[in-house]
Structures are given as structure tokens and as C-alpha cells.
Design a protein around this nucleic acid. Structure first.
Lengths: 223, 223
DNA sequence: AATAAAAACCGTGTAAACACCCCGCAGAAA
DNA sequence: TTTCTGCGGGGTGTTTACACGGTTTTTATT
């Protein structure tokens, strides 16, 4: 009654929380017809370990990771191996992260406080239907589209920060003054003013504290 | 060759991240001489499920949880069942959390990106030696005592915020001005200035952004 | 109950930092 | 060409940070 292994769904786990990742790996292995190819600490290690001859069907992808985070890695997969399905795994349920992951190619989005049963359902759904949207995700998406600012409605592109902006945001999350940030970035304080103004507009915040909170909620800075 | 069950170490897991908790539970069960009594979503559920006739030897305790967090629950255990050992489980490695948990009675402190091997070692150490201090924890503690402010040296008590201060910090993590915060708390703006100044001194920060970052790192506000 | 000490509360003032408006220029992309 | 993006600048009012001071209320002790 032994079935052939070729039918098994090959899963890869990418998460820097080793205990969680290990536990998940065991959970996945306990499911019928699922097998774990390998595990990776972050996106960089994942890409290094990826073997073209033996591609996974599903990648369980954490979002907040060092080296190369879930957003980048998912985008990289979409561009290089579009048939590898990504199921995003996150602690946070903020709209921006969900939208960004789905936009980058993730087929589903589950939280770390999900029940194992739902987790299994998500895996199955991604494999068979090609996607998995929980009620939570659907709800957040509906909420998000209903709360788009006017600028976002006309330009429905996702909020993205370039390297320079990201660097600025990280420094804005410290106790440095804008003048000190300007020095550190080898820019004029006026230019820093410009970065701040465009980011305030783009991220829909009004103060530096608002910027900081946004950055933390969206994993731009690591706490 | 079957050993008697009475020798087994009874473990309870308290964490709101169900997937991690489940994985950990399986990991613990896979260890020789360890058994899992039950699991709980948070401190409140844990206390409800606790059975005096069948106390655990070790409680694996997450810190950031809804309802009743790891700090409170550990303190409660220390006061009610001092022989139950707590091994703190956290995502963050900031000194304040470590010190606070150890102060509240935790016998050890490990991070969620710990290797399963070290995790096992921590469990064993807590059971046999009664404590577990990883190099990370020891290092942080040394760093912490070397960086105490003068006021902390004379009064070596832990930093604690009262209700009013906590309320202020939470509002300081929004885009409100101090004047608006004053209105919301039915206080004069000058009084708010006082709160800010004492908190700056107490928490060793210099700007509002510093205050916000401290609050987030130490779980005073929930992101 | 009296009194001292400790908090919590509030007022005025000032310099720095922040937020926001205006503007131009160069180069790449459309 | 136009448009967008990164870059740099001036000016101005508001907010923040940090002084000095004060009163009232709470808490502890004699």
C-alpha cells in the first residue's frame, strides 16, 4: 500500500525563528503527501540552497527576516521561478504587508497564530486551487480598498520606498535630528526636508512619530 | 525497557502563536523523559487550566501575549507556585525584558531563533540545575549593569511605569501633539511636559522618537 | 491629628527642532 | 517635448525640549 513518493508535495520553509521553523517542518512532514525539501534562515540562504533539479512546489515564507526579507525573496521567486508558490507567514496582519506580499506573487497569507488545521487547509488550497485567502486576509483587503486615499485611488500602485528613502526612514527611527541625518547621508538638511515631505505624503502620515510607527508596522525597520 | 512515566518532566507551553506552540509541543514530546501537560494561548488561559494536583515542572512562557502577558503570569506563578520553573521565550533580546522576566522569577530566557539543540539544553539545565543562562543573556546582563544610569545605580529597582505614564507613552506613540495629549488626558500641557521629562530621564532617551522606540521594544505599546 | 515628605499638578520663557510652504536644476524616462 | 525623479535651497510658523519657578494633593511617619 506504499504510494510512490513522486506524488508528494515538496515544501521549503524560510524563517529565521528556528524553533518555529522546525516545528512547522515537523508538522508539514506529519501531513499525508507532504515532504520538506529543506529549511532556510532567510532569503539569501534560501536562494543559495535552491536546486533547479528539485524545485519545491510551495515555499512557506516568513516576512521579517535579516539579509533578504520575504518581500524581496518572493519577488525574486516570481521573476525566476514563477511556478513555485509562496505561502506568506507573518506575525502581523497589517494591510500593507498583505498587499505587498500578494503583489509580489504570494498565493496566500497566514498568521503565526493560525490553527494547525487551518494551516493544513491553506497548504492544500495553495496546491490544488493555487491560492488561499482566509477571511482575515479578505477582510483586510476589502478594508484597504475602501480606505485608499485619493492619491492612491488615481495611482493604484503600491507604496514602495527606494534605497535612499529606506535609509532615511531607518535614521528617522533614531534619536538623531534631521540635521544629523543629513550629515550622515552626506546631504543638505533641505534635501532631508524633501525626503520627509514626500514620505509624509506617500505614507499618509503627518509627523515623524507617524513615520516611525509606519516603518515599524511595515517592517522597514527592525525592532 | 519501558521506563515509568512518573519520572517524566511535565511541561506546559504558553504562547499565542499557535503554530510555534504546537511545533514546540511536538519537539518537547520527542525529547526523552519529557511530556506536555497542556498548552495555553495566554496567561489567563494558562491559569484557568492549571491543576493543583498536576503541576508542571517547567512552563515555557512567551512574553508578548494578549489578555495576560508573560511578565504578569510569571510573577503570578512566583507568588502562587514558586516551585514551578519558568523558561522565558521571546522574540526580542532587549535587556529590559530579560531583566524583568528574571526579576519576576523566570529561571532562563531563550530566543525564538534558538537551535533545537540549545533549546533542549535549556530545558535540561532548568530542570537539573534550576536555571539556564545562555551566553546571550549573560552578555546582555553584563552590558546592562555596566550601563546603568546613576539614578539606577543608587536605586537598583527596575524601570516601571505607572498607569498614567503608560497612558501618556501610548499617546506619545501617535501623531498627536503634546497639547492634544494634554486635552485627551484632561491635564495641562505643562503637566504633560513633566511626564515627558521624567520619562526621558527614567528611560534614558532624549527625544520623542526615542521614547516611541523604547515603548515598542519593551512592549509598552502594541504594534 | 500634625507634620514632613513625596508625588502630581501647573505657569512662563527660550532655543532648537520640526513641519510646511515656496523655488530651481540636472538627468533619465516617456 | 514633457514628465518624473533625485537633488539642493529660502523662509516661516508650530512643536518640541528644557530651563526656571510654583501650588495642590497624597502618602508616610511621628
Amino acid at each position: 500500500m506504499e504510494m510512490l513518493k513522486t506524488n508528494e508535495r515538496k515544501v521549503v520553509l524560510v524563517d529565521d525563528h528556528i524553533l518555529l521553523r522546525n516545528g512547522l517542518a515537523n508538522l508539514v512532514k506529519s501531513f499525508d503527501n507532504y515532504t520538506v525539501l529543506f529549511e532556510a534562515n532567510n532569503g539569501k540562504h534560501f536562494i543559495e540552497q535552491l536546486n533547479t533539479d528539485q524545485l519545491p512546489e510551495i515555499v512557506l515564507m516568513d516576512i521579517n527576516m535579516p539579509e533578504k526579507d520575504g518581500f524581496e525573496t518572493t519577488l525574486w521567486l516570481k521573476q525566476n521561478y514563477p511556478y513555485v508558490k509562496v505561502l506568506a507567514l507573518s506575525m502581523y496582519d497589517n494591510e500593507q504587508s498583505i498587499i505587498r506580499m500578494l503583489k509580489n506573487g504570494a498565493k496566500g497569507y497566514i498568521l503565526k497564530d493560525t490553527e494547525p488545521k487551518e494551516f493544513k487547509a491553506a497548504l492544500d488550497s495553495v496546491c490544488t486551487k493555487g491560492f488561499y485567502y482566509s477571511e482575515m486576509v479578505a477582510g483586510k483587503l476589502i478594508y484597504a480598498v475602501n480606505n485608499l486615499s485619493d492619491s492612491e485611488k488615481t495611482v493604484p500602485s503600491l507604496i514602495t520606498l527606494n534605497d535612499r528613502e529606506t535609509e532615511f526612514v531607518k535614521l528617522a527611527c533614531t534619536e538623531m535630528t534631521y540635521k544629523e541625518i543629513a550629515d550622515k547621508m552626506f546631504l543638505s538638511p533641505r534635501t532631508i526636508d524633501g525626503y520627509r515631505d514626500t514620505l509624509f505624503e506617500k505614507l499618509n502620515v503627518k509627523t515623524r512619530v507617524g513615520l516611525v510607527m509606519y516603518a515599524i508596522k511595515n517592517g522597514i525597520v527592525n525592532v
